[in-house]
Amino acid sequence: MTVHKLDNIDRKILEALQHDASLSNAELAERICLSPSPCSRRVRILEEQGFFRGRVTLVDPARVGLPVSVFLHVTLDQPVKKNLKHFETKVSAWPEVMECYLMTGDFDYLLRVAVPDLAAYQRFLEDKLTGVKGVSSIRSSFSLKQVQYRTALPLGHLGEEALDTEQL
């Protein structure tokens, strides 16, 4: 597969689609000052090169009854490959887990869980998380207010000049 070199137009396409994936090709082309045919071709190339992980609609958690975000620090008793894989398989199957990161430092995993209320969180802990073999400690922090939430990656570091994606 040929490595695609990102240029300023590609960066504009990525930025525009990160903010609104529902843009039609004509709208996108107009927004980035390109005619529709080359715009469509560039989007197809970016897609083929794996720059897009998917297209989604962001739903307001409070409007669908999931106003509580809980951040959990999870420590395993023995963080060896087999136990890490077991834990990751378990949490990946739970719809409440919105994000899960393997971490360095004082704990092994950071999870963000979305639940309707404290009772639902208690059920999540009792019925799911505390039942995972190898979990030695769980520390929970409740979000009081979401100050900032972004899904669009900052692409300013790509600059105006062409950038070889192998450098990314």
Rank of each mutant, 00 (worst) to 15 (best):
M103T: 14
R42C: 12
F142D: 07
N83I: 08
M1F: 00
H86Q: 15
K5E: 08
E30M: 00
L111D: 12
K85Y: 11
V70P: 02
D127K: 10
S22R: 14
D10W: 06
P67R: 04
V59N: 01
I138A: 03
A26V: 09
L163G: 00
Y149S: 03
K82Y: 07
A162S: 15
V64R: 11
K90W: 14
M1C: 03
I138M: 03
L23Q: 10
V91H: 11
G105I: 13
L17C: 07
F107C: 11
V132D: 02
E47Q: 10
V113L: 13
Q167H: 06
I32L: 01
A62K: 11
T151W: 05
L58S: 09
R55Q: 08
R11S: 09
V64N: 14
K85H: 07
A120R: 11
K12R: 10
H73C: 13
V147T: 06
R41N: 08
R31L: 01
T75P: 02
T151F: 03
M103F: 09
I32N: 07
N25L: 07
V74Q: 00
E160G: 12
N25C: 02
I138R: 02
V115T: 09
V113G: 10
W94I: 15
P61E: 04
D20R: 14
F71R: 04
L66E: 03
A29L: 06
R53G: 14
T2E: 12
F51Y: 14
G50H: 10
V91F: 11
R55D: 01
Q167V: 06
L58G: 05
D127C: 05
F52W: 09
F87T: 03
S137W: 02
P154W: 10
D117P: 05
D20H: 08
V147R: 13
W94R: 07
D164A: 07
F124K: 04
T2M: 12
R11E: 04
D127H: 11
N8S: 15
L23N: 01
D127T: 02
S141K: 06
R44P: 03
G54W: 11
M1D: 07
L76W: 10
A26G: 11
L84F: 00
S35D: 03
M98Y: 12
D77R: 14
H4Q: 00
K85L: 13
V135W: 01
S140M: 06
Q148G: 11
H73Q: 12
D106E: 15
E15P: 00
Y121H: 09
S35P: 05
E47H: 10
D60N: 13
I32W: 04
Y101V: 11
R31F: 04
L110I: 08
E96K: 04
V135R: 02
Q49K: 11
A93F: 05
T57N: 01
L168C: 08
A162P: 09
R55E: 09
V64M: 14
L72I: 03
A119F: 06
F124P: 00
L14T: 09
S22F: 12
L153T: 08
P154R: 15
K133H: 02
R123M: 09
D127S: 12
E30A: 13
